[in-house]
Amino acid sequence: MKKNWVIAIDAGHGKFTPGKQSPDGEKEWNFNNKVVQAILNELGKYPMMKCVRVDDQTGKTDRSLYDRVQIANKKKADIYISSHHNASTGNWGTWTGVETFVMAPKVNNPKSTLLAQHIHLKVVTAMSLKNRGIKEADFYVLRETEMPAILIEGGFMDSLIDIKKLRDDQRLYEQGRAIAQGIVDYITFVNVLMKKIRFLFP
């Protein structure tokens, strides 16, 4: 049974990344960062977990996707979590919901899909938004990471519905706690499974 886990945490984009904002100019990084801070705070309660933040935690630079992935791979992270918030047209609308991505095709990434399954519904509940499901995509941070990796879109910045939740710091904190609890549940499941395998095949 694995005793120590390295968790790579990624707040998508940076404070000054063009276009990554609500129609009112609220930067995506500010939403992402609050979620990531909550994840780090919650996982800090578990001595067996070491968190590695792969973005620029000041938000002043938008660290390249290559560099983020390289940090995670060099640290031999066991899990990669990328926190994002969505946009549709960049203008206000009524689209809504939470979606989680794994590398396409999902069938070739069962560990990432399992990780997503332990986290996704918890985020939907925390945000009290529509469940848009677990999806697959050819995103760089999902394709090039050497560990189970997911990208979470915790709501739409250009949604008249979702923005009310995104402007609520407590709601974002709960999203981060939900992600952290999903990570804990995933790790517990994997450890129990490995223990059973060792029992059956000593």
Score class of each variant (00 low, 15 high):
Asp67Ile: 08
Glu99Ile: 07
Asn30Phe: 06
Ser82Met: 03
Asp78Ala: 08
Cys51Val: 04
Glu99Trp: 05
Gly44Cys: 10
Gly59Thr: 09
Ser64Arg: 03
Ser64Val: 10
Lys34Leu: 15
Gln57Thr: 15
Thr89Pro: 08
Lys75Ile: 05
Ala104Cys: 11
Asn86Met: 14
Pro105His: 15
Thr96Pro: 08
Gln37Ala: 03
Phe31Asp: 03
Gly25Tyr: 06
Arg63Gly: 08
Arg63Asn: 03
Ala87Arg: 05
Lys75Gly: 04
Thr61Ser: 14
Lys75Ala: 08
Val69Ile: 08
Gln21Trp: 02
Lys76Met: 08
Ser22Arg: 03
Pro110Leu: 11
Ser64Met: 07
Asn32Ile: 02
Met48Asp: 15
Thr89Cys: 01
Lys20Tyr: 12
Arg53Glu: 08
His84Tyr: 04
Ser83Cys: 14
Val69Trp: 00
Gly93Tyr: 11
Gly90Gln: 14
Lys60Asp: 10
Gln37Asp: 12
Tyr80Ala: 05
Lys60Leu: 11
Pro105Leu: 10
Asn73Glu: 04
Trp92Lys: 01
Gln37Trp: 07
Thr89Trp: 04
Gly44Thr: 09
Ala77His: 00
Lys106Glu: 05
Met48Ser: 14
Asn32Thr: 07
Met48Thr: 11
Met49Glu: 00
Asp56Ser: 09
Lys45Ala: 10
Gln70Lys: 14
Thr96Trp: 02
Glu28Gly: 02
Ala87Glu: 00
Asp67Gly: 06
Tyr66Arg: 15
Ile81Asn: 00
Gln37Ser: 07
Trp95Val: 09
Lys111Gly: 04
Lys74His: 13
Ala104Thr: 09
Thr89Leu: 05
Asn32Asp: 15
Trp92Ala: 07
Thr100Leu: 03
Ile81His: 01
Pro47Phe: 07
Asp78Ser: 14
Tyr80Ser: 01
Pro47Gly: 06
Lys50Trp: 03
Val52Leu: 15
Arg68His: 10
Lys50Pro: 02
Gln21Thr: 11
Gln57Ser: 14
